[in-house]
Design a protein around this nucleic acid. Structure first.
Lengths: 322, 322
DNA sequence: CTGTTAGCGCGTTCAG
DNA sequence: CTGAACGCGCTAACAG
């Protein structure tokens, strides 16, 4: 039709035809149907973001970065939560591929085995976010968890701590194991006697943080510092500390991975390794879009962003020798 | 083709054909294309959620409710942030309608004039969330802001306060004006001299909360209590209080609309009117889906959920007379 | 039980 | 400058 031409401002159109079409468009409240276009040109201008839980402020901020970058480029974003369930993740992936999203941003759930299988057969460009999928050749954007954990642990060591409880997440999740690795490296370097009983593995949840902390307090001698491997674990640990009647930092130091957005916190208190969540979301989206546009070499791209050590009160002052 | 039949398990299929098709499907990694279906049947199984800022934990939780309800029903959700800009909102609406989403959940931005215009001409079912669009006949799911604010104010009055500063949001936003209305009703009922200078209007942001609080402190006599009209204003006000060297609740009481998710708070401290954000998201989505399914009478539906008064330390004890 | 026809709405290609 | 034909992938309706 001629209307296509006027709507897209393409080709030659007589003044007369243009006016008539515009009138009709207004009259009929005509709205172009992108679906037909997508069907024909195999481009939906839609991305998907699959993450474990949008309710975690780290992922919220990341999601905001994704949406902003996508929006800037004229793309929409479909969000999906997996709650760390690979079954859910697979369900979402299936639907999204059927819907022909142009690309997928994936924070892989759980032990990543299906993610890997998926990654292999993938028919749509994928960028893995935050975590790592072992042995898979997929573009990845993440933070340097190992180094961040190393720095946090070093800080505690320098303050005089040596019995540092590490409350970690599921070992199958790369961010959890990387943080344990950083902790180990710092401890080893300091020549601290590496006590394996100080390392706990649980979930990235408040409840898990709580119970791991309580388990840590039952050790003899108890730890003088606690390293919470993410923000939720930190909050669980904090509450366990209070429940045990201990003060932070006087009786015990607490540091954590992941900052809480300053907008949400009455008084910044926790010493943390902060991740640039927003930047991660943006960078990952830009990477994905560049990939879609064919602007990238075929090799796997990996972007590793630094964490920032933010020292606040919860890590306390130099520990006096006892 | 026959393949459609085997894939959808519809009609009669010979064993032989079924096997052959399944083999081919596996072979070619065939994935059905929902787009074609959507084009034909005018159903994308996709909803949209437009809100001001996913980064606000209230909206994050609400979004989670939306996603869960949608997911249960086999729908995907496209998220959009407007940052209270009607221009952004319109851009998003245009794109979404072109993409033929089946329905839209809208937290209307700003002064809602364009929202209204849109609402009138709308070609797609819309449910308005959290706020109200004046004079528009659209299904709505929201909280009872007026009553929540009334209760919070009553609490302060009962504790002996009478100079209560109200730090509110943009008057054009219904939640802001409803909360002011609830405040006014409680004050009037108590026969408290309603001092208009105690009512401040700003934005639903931390910065605005901060500056409104500072303005309030410059009054003579200063307020003995502060009512923050949302969570961000509360945090800004809190910081202003601290900056002024005052203690909460000893020197000044602080109450707020919106709770912060317990998972994010080290120590629950603020007295609040908590909104059931998750439920709002779920209910609104269920309403929209029912509307889509034609299960609803044509009249406008409105669901008003109650707030919950949660008394914590920040409101303090009974004020001693001075 | 299986294949054909047709049309959802669009834009490219090619003739007027 | 404008229109007709075609096909993107799918399935309902109808023959075979």
């Amino acid at each position: 039709m001629t209307v296509s031409r006027v709507i897209n401002n393409s080709g030659y159109i007589s003044q007369d035809a243009r006016v008539r079409v515009e009138a009709a468009v207004a009259e009929l409240q005509y709205v172009p149907n992108t679906l037909a276009n997508s069907l024909r040109f195999k481009q939906t201008k839609t991305l998907a973001l699959i993450l474990t839980d949008i309710t975690n402020p780290f992922f919220t901020t990341l999601a905001r970065g994704v949406e902003d970058a996508a929006s800037d480029a004229g793309f929409s974003v479909i969000f999906c939560n997996t709650d760390e369930s690979e079954v859910e993740q697979d369900k979402h992936l299936t639907v999204l591929i059927r819907k022909r999203v142009d690309g997928i941003l994936l924070v892989p759930a759980g032990s990543t085995s299906t993610s890997m299988a998926f990654a292999r057969q993938r028919t749509v460009p994928v960028v893995v976010l935050d975590r790592t999928v072992p042995n898979a050749c997929i573009d990845t954007v993440r933070c340097d968890s190992e180094h961040g954990a190393y720095e946090l642990t070093r800080l505690l060591l320098e303050l005089g701590h040596s019995r540092i409880a590490m409350l970690s997440g599921p070992p199958a999740v790369s961010t959890a194991s990387d943080r344990v690795a950083g902790y180990r490296r710092a401890m080893a370097e300091a020549g601290a006697s590496l006590c394996e009983t100080l390392i706990f593995s649980g979930q990235f949840t408040q409840a898990s943080g709580h119970s791991m902390a309580e388990a840590a307090f039952r050790l003899n001698p108890p730890p003088t510092a606690v390293f919470a491997s993410n923000n939720f674990i930190a909050i669980g640990a904090y509450r366990a500390v209070r429940k045990a009647g201990l003060r932070i930092p006087e009786d015990i130091a607490l540091v954590a991975f992941d900052d809480l957005p300053p907008a949400l916190v009455l008084e910044p208190f926790l010493t943390v390794a902060a991740q640039p969540a927003y930047e991660m979301g943006r960078k990952a989206t830009e990477l994905l879009l560049a990939r879609l546009a064919g602007q990238l070499p075929p090799e796997r791209q990996e972007i590793v962003l630094p964490t920032e050590l933010v020292v606040r009160r919860s890590s306390g002052d130099k520990l006096l020798k006892k």
